[in-house]
Design a protein around this nucleic acid. Structure first.
Lengths: 177, 177
DNA sequence: TGAGGCTAGTACATGTATTAACTAGTATCT
DNA sequence: AGATACTAGTTAATACATGTACTAGCCTCA
């Protein structure tokens, strides 16, 4: 083995090991960047997985399904395209998801009047009732997560994450269709 | 429409609108937590998607494929289970992915000697060469992303993200199998 | 030593994402 | 008005992750 016994590695000792080898053996330079993106990715995955498993699946919703209903709930009836932008999904994903949510009875889909191509999404009454309940649980869970940071820390974190993604106009970023 | 014309909504005005309605119309309390998790999720998705589209897909790798090869590269030959822990995937995902990466010729899979149930993953020579090149591009791209924050800000961000996920022992978090 | 329980990995069915190709409606420009 | 280009949405093929159920190997302890 080149890296010693990896049996006891946890995430942080892996990051440390990785950074050391990347720098010393291969001469890569941007270690802090690697560490940052690894940590960002991991934090998001852990939190998302927990919310989906503990809140949404028990209500028969996928994480994506929740996100789509959430923006539809709060941003009023909106076009599928807008929903895709706000949720960060592709238009095709919204189209597919909408189909199942309509079948489940939580979403309405009607053609737009101004633009005949567009589709307006809105919640059904049942969908609205469900969202209030699901979001109640979701919000409690979110608070448990966020609560390990002070409000000040939370604000800093939001600010830094925002800065990270909004400054991306500085280079050519690949986004979804 | 209950929410006014949503046509001009971008992510941040949506968050603002959502928070206002959640608080005023429905009486939900943990707005900062909602904002934090929405922002975290979004930042991670945007950065990940960009890296995958601009670096990994052109090399014929999925994001997950890259992650698996990455930990295998740096943490030496390791058991599939360990790889699952480090990448945050399920064991089944590692098993499936390994199958395709072995077929692609970048990964070796051999049975463990100590434990006959386990499987040891390691890079082939070709896989090793590929990783060096792919990671070079990956690391440059990471640096472009991280570079919009000062090193000090990057460190704070890493620290806060770490605090967020490592304090989770305080409550019962759902993790993958 | 052998029964029961545990663990690593895999196969399968399912769900859901992606891209690319397509349809149909809209906008523009002459 | 008509040709052309563009845009919204859907569909189809494909990729991949999940949970569940299973197999096979290990461990313990009586």
């Amino acid at each position: 083995m080149t890296a010693g016994d990896p049996g006891g590695l946890d995430f942080w000792s892996f990051v440390e090991l990785a950074n050391r080898r990347l720098a010393e053996e291969y001469g890569f330079k941007h270690q802090l960047a690697t560490e940052l993106l690894l940590t960002l990715n991991r934090a998001s995955n852990i939190v998302t997985y927990d919310l989906e498993a503990s809140v949404h699946r028990p209500h028969g919703l996928s994480w994506s399904g929740f996100r789509l209903l959430f923006v539809t709930w709060l941003a009023g009836p909106l076009e599928a395209k807008k929903a895709a932008e706000l949720t960060g999904m592709s238009r095709a994903a919204v189209s597919n998801l909408a189909k199942t949510l309509v079948a489940d009875g939580s979403l309405n889909r009607e053609s737009g009047v101004r633009d005949g191509r567009s589709v307006l999404l809105s919640l059904t009454d049942a969908g609205h009732r469900d969202m209030i309940e699901v979001f109640r649980e979701h919000n409690e869970r979110e608070d448990e997560w966020a609560g390990v940071l002070s409000p000040e820390e939370q604000r800093i974190l939001v600010m830094l994450l925002d800065k990270l993604v909004t400054s991306r106009d500085q280079f050519d970023v690949r986004g979804r269709n």
